[in-house]
Computed example of a mutant assay.
Amino acid sequence: MKEVFLYIFFGGLTTVVNFVVYFIARDLLKTDLIVSNTLSWIAAVLFAFITNKIWVFQSKTQGIIELLIELLKFVFYRLLSFGIDMGCMLLFINVMHLGDFLSKLFTQVFIVIANYVFSKLFIFKKKTVSSKESTKE
């Protein structure tokens, strides 16, 4: 239960990062929807990787190769959710004519759930010790 709470907490902060960067890019830098959403995704992924690795899933990696593999898996699954994010944003804004804020909010709720499943099942899996390894100790 602690893990779910931490994921929701840091997922909420990741969403804040996503929103802030999106609206800074869109309103201050005057970028279009795709550029704004891409920049916000990059910032959110970097923030989420660090917080998920350290505090949510407390993943321990040994060596740079293992860390890079974990990061690449994280980015791969976040690219999947980015496709969902971008598709939903384009659908909600361009087809359904919802505003940016509401579209971003609806999309992020779904993305947080999908990313938890990806992280739990495929990225930050707990390493199991085989019975053969445990008898050696």
Rank of each mutant, 00 (worst) to 15 (best):
W55I: 01
L98T: 07
D32C: 08
S59V: 06
T135R: 12
S134Y: 11
N115P: 00
G63L: 03
V45N: 04
F110R: 00
H97Y: 12
F106V: 11
L91G: 12
V16N: 07
V75I: 12
K104D: 14
S131T: 11
S131R: 13
L80V: 11
T107C: 06
V16T: 10
L29C: 09
L98C: 03
V21D: 07
N115Q: 04
V112A: 01
K125H: 12
F106I: 15
K132P: 06
S59G: 12
K120H: 09
K120P: 10
N115E: 02
T14R: 00
F10L: 00
L67G: 07
I113Q: 01
T31S: 00
F74N: 03
L102C: 01
Q58A: 13
K126I: 02
V117D: 04
A25R: 03
F23G: 08
N52K: 00
V129G: 05
Y22L: 11
F106W: 02
L33C: 01
S40E: 06
K2N: 15
T31V: 11
E133A: 12
L13D: 02
Q62V: 13
V16F: 14
L46R: 03
V4S: 09
I65N: 14
L72Q: 09
I24H: 05
G99D: 09
G11L: 00
M86P: 03
A43S: 07
V45I: 10
Q108S: 03
L80H: 11
M1G: 14
F19C: 02
T15V: 05
V129L: 13
T61C: 13
K53W: 07
M96D: 01
S59R: 04
A48V: 08
W41E: 00
V56F: 04
S59Q: 13
F106H: 04
I34T: 13
S119Q: 08
F74K: 04
I93V: 14
L98R: 07
F76A: 05
R26Y: 15
K120M: 09
F82M: 04
F10R: 02
R78E: 05
N94I: 00
E3S: 08
F122G: 01
Y22F: 13
W55D: 12
I24V: 10
G12W: 03
D32M: 05
C88P: 02
Q58V: 06
